[in-house]
């Protein structure tokens, strides 16, 4: 595994598009930190900075940064399809890597990127929480911090899904189009078609985004607002999507990741590498 990591490191760290995309990802998170509080001044009564308090900062940050995972998936798609278009998978096999090892390289990369993303969001959340919370105790700070685990899983799921697209399609542009098309068009349409059936919650991308659900904002603000809290909550139940309980969702996505990786391995064993 160490060998595979060193090989991947040489390839990745000297690859400009990788640096650019990863830089954009970091920038997007940092910019978010600056921009969200700016909006704050334009919204009366409720303050967005309320969401940056412990423990609400955890569900809010995981929800708001979840779409950034698409960028990580794009990185994985690019570096994988490049191996096909440059025929470098072939070169590596000729010199002694196994076909499975080719995939382990990419899985290791996915694991590391997911760790980096999770760490980054964790640090951001902690910084926000520290600067905006009124009351600060360890208990309050750590409440909801477990949400970083589903966040990590969500990152991994995005990237393994991207990896499968890359291996299936091989061509960079088509694989990116396929992935984005599936995520933003095909699956939402399927979701609409299936809207009457509970099975809609089992769609892979939907299950994935449900790992970092839209926080119950109304419940969060309710304490601050005067008026009928109960009525607000009732209307919140109407608006907020229900779906599967978190533990079932986690199991479902774990299942999807396992299936995606399994199919990827099978495809790599059979693929012609010339």
């Amino acid at each position: 595994m160490k060998k595979l990591l060193r090989i991947e490191q040489i390839k990745i760290l000297n690859y400009l598009p990788f640096q650019v995309l990863l830089g954009l990802y970091v920038l997007a998170i940092i910019l978010g930190l600056v921009i969200y509080p700016l909006f704050d001044k334009q919204v009366p009564i409720v303050s967005l900075t309320d969401l940056f308090r412990f423990p609400d900062v955890w569900p809010f940050m995981t929800w708001i940064t979840e779409p950034y995972n698409t960028m990580l998936a794009l990185i994985v798609i690019m570096v994988t399809t490049n191996e096909f278009t440059n025929h470098t998978f072939k070169t590596q096999v000729i010199f002694g890597l196994g076909r499975a090892e080719l995939l382990w390289q990419k899985l290791a990369l996915i694991f590391i990127l997911a760790m980096v993303a999770t760490l980054l969001v964790t640090i951001t959340s902690v910084l926000l929480g520290l600067s905006y919370s009124y009351k600060l105790t360890l208990n309050i700070a750590l409440e909801n911090s477990w949400m970083m685990l589903p966040y990590f899983l969500s990152s991994v799921a995005y990237m393994t899904f991207g990896l499968l697209f890359a291996i299936l399609i091989k061509n960079t542009a088509s694989a990116i189009l396929g992935f984005i098309g599936f995520r933003t068009f095909l699956e939402p349409v399927l979701f609409l078609i299936l809207r009457k059936y509970e099975i809609k919650w089992f769609l892979p991308m939907r299950a994935n985004t449900r790992l970092t659900p839209l926080p119950n904002l109304i419940e969060m603000f309710e304490q601050k607002l005067d008026g009928d809290g109960e009525a607000m909550e009732a209307s919140a139940m109407e608006i907020l999507p229900k779906g599967l309980p978190m533990w079932a969702n986690i199991l479902l996505v774990l299942g999807y990741v396992a299936l995606t990786v399994f199919i990827s391995f099978r495809l790599m064993q059979k693929k012609k590498l010339t």
Binding site: K3, I7, I10, K11, L16, N86, H87, T88, T91, Q92
Partner: peptide, 20 residues
């Protein structure tokens, strides 16, 4: 021969060294 186009000769050969 197929190598990483954006890597130098040395970096490309380093990858082969790692594999071997």
């Amino acid at each position: 021969p197929h190598f990483y186009p954006y890597l130098t000769l040395e970096q490309n050969l380093k990858i082969i060294c790692e594999i071997k």
